[in-house]
């Protein structure tokens, strides 16, 4: 495991911190990651996110999260990390043999 999201943290301190942007397209949908931007604080990050990512009414709600505050799983450990789920096929309904003539199953 290592910290940081998709975007690698800036190499220098000259830049404003990086924020990851999430947009809810419309009521009933989850927030989805759309990209990132730089801003000095959360308030400006939100305003900039509106201007950069929702110029055509792409969203009804925005989240901005400091990239540094995201803890992400590592792609190198992907196999071992997600492996425990691979051999539990009984968690899927298709695992079960049932008679074909039973209704509503």
């Amino acid at each position: 495991m290592s910290g940081g999201s998709d975007a690698v943290a800036p190499s220098s301190e000259r830049s404003w911190p990086l924020w990851e942007v999430f947009v809810r397209g419309k009521r009933g949908l989850s927030h989805v990651h759309v990209g990132s931007l730089h801003a000095p604080d959360a308030e400006l990050a939100l305003r900039n996110a509106r201007d950069v990512y929702t110029r055509r009414q792409e969203g009804v709600s925005l989240w901005v999260v400091r990239a540094d505050d995201i803890t992400a799983s590592s792609p190198d450990e992907k196999d071992s990390f997600f492996d425990p789920a691979a051999d539990k096929i009984y968690r899927h309904p298709t695992f079960y043999d049932v008679p074909e003539d039973v209704e509503y199953l």
Binding site: D6, V8, S15, G35, H38
Partner: peptide, 15 residues
């Protein structure tokens, strides 16, 4: 800005 954001995911700073 979309493109600088994509470039930054490769480990380079926009500045």
């Amino acid at each position: 800005l979309y493109l600088y954001s994509a470039a930054e995911t490769l480990g380079i700073d926009r500045q």
